[in-house]
């Protein structure tokens, strides 16, 4: 198999072609609508391009074309940030708890995994009904926030497991020997070492919330988040404005992905450059 001095076997070229085709399959459609979102004003939903313009992007901000684009994108961004902060904090805290061990850790783990695989529409229906029975109004910053956390937290927890599985406890012991308090140890030893993974958790928290719709469906309340707005548009809008919206949202997601991965990467590089042994445990 893979040894540096060996010639590549035939299967390598076969699988490499397969991988390339899969990547094309993954990205092809998105690239297609990105190109089509620059359709001329008279262009349609399919090729050929009828001239090029930014007409459909301008169209996004006209109220009649898209229900409430500005409001929904604002809500989705705020909600995404809230979910991100909560996912990071709660996941790190839970990860630390699992390092020490506690009674009920196994049921809590299974519950988290159940949260990951229970169909979103069930969570949505359940929270919606629960609010209705208690007599509370669902809101995007309340019930929808909770609904989305049931989706992002399991990912955060799994990442923390992966991180702490490879975490060398002797760093903290050294900190303790030097007289660090538990809090100082966390702030100056543990967090810096796990920092790159924390950006990974943040990435999951934000993007999964920003694109989430089945769990928000019955929990979002009066005002739509962006994915719900898009969902409603799929049946009513038949112009490339839909593609323009796709290009904008994908652009926002990609920006967040690049910022998070880039930061994690820079932290790793700096460490390597400084020759610090911090992070070797990770």
């Amino acid at each position: 198999m893979a040894f540096r001095d060996e010639r590549r076997p035939f299967s390598f070229y076969l699988l490499a072609t397969g991988f390339a085709l899969y990547v094309l399959f993954l990205y092809g459609p998105t690239i297609t609508i990105t190109v089509l979102s620059f359709q001329g004003p008279d262009g349609g939903l399919t090729f050929p391009m009828n001239g090029t313009s930014t007409h459909w992007f301008a169209n996004l901000f006209e109220r009649q074309a898209v229900g409430d684009f500005e409001g929904s994108i604002r809500r989705s961004l705020i909600l995404g940030l809230m979910v991100m902060v909560l996912t990071v904090t709660i996941s790190i805290a839970a990860g630390l708890a699992y390092r020490k061990g506690f009674r009920g850790e196994t049921p809590l783990f299974y519950l988290s995994m159940a949260s990951l695989i229970i169909p979103s529409i069930l969570v949505s229906l359940g929270i919606g009904l629960m609010f209705q029975l208690i007599g509370l109004h669902p809101t995007w910053y309340g019930s929808a926030l909770g609904a989305q956390l049931t989706w992002t937290l399991p990912f955060g927890l799994l990442i923390m497991f992966a991180v702490f599985n490879r975490f060398n406890p002797s760093y903290e012991e050294a900190g303790r020997d030097l007289g660090a308090t538990a809090w100082q140890n966390l702030r100056h030893v543990v967090l810096p070492i796990i920092a790159p993974s924390v950006f990974g958790v943040a990435l999951f928290g934000f993007t999964l919330s920003y694109d989430e719709f089945p769990r928000t469906l019955m929990t979002g309340g009066t005002f739509n988040t962006l994915p719900l707005e898009i969902m409603a548009m799929t049946t009513s809008v038949t112009t490339p404005v839909l593609y323009a919206l796709g290009t904008v949202t994908t652009g926002i997601s990609l920006t967040v992905i690049i910022v998070c991965l880039g930061t994690a990467f820079v932290i790793q590089r700096r460490r390597a450059a400084r020759g610090s042994d911090a992070g070797r445990g990770v």
Binding site: A93, G101, G126, L129, G146
Partner: peptide, 28 residues
């Protein structure tokens, strides 16, 4: 007690937004 406080928020979120809702579904 520390790990219980650390696992608390996760437990709370899953209880409020997963267990209770599923119980609600069964009742309804």
């Amino acid at each position: 007690l520390v790990p219980y406080f650390q696992a608390g928020p996760l437990t709370l979120v899953l209880a409020l937004f997963l267990i209770f809702p599923i119980v609600t579904i069964v009742i309804v």
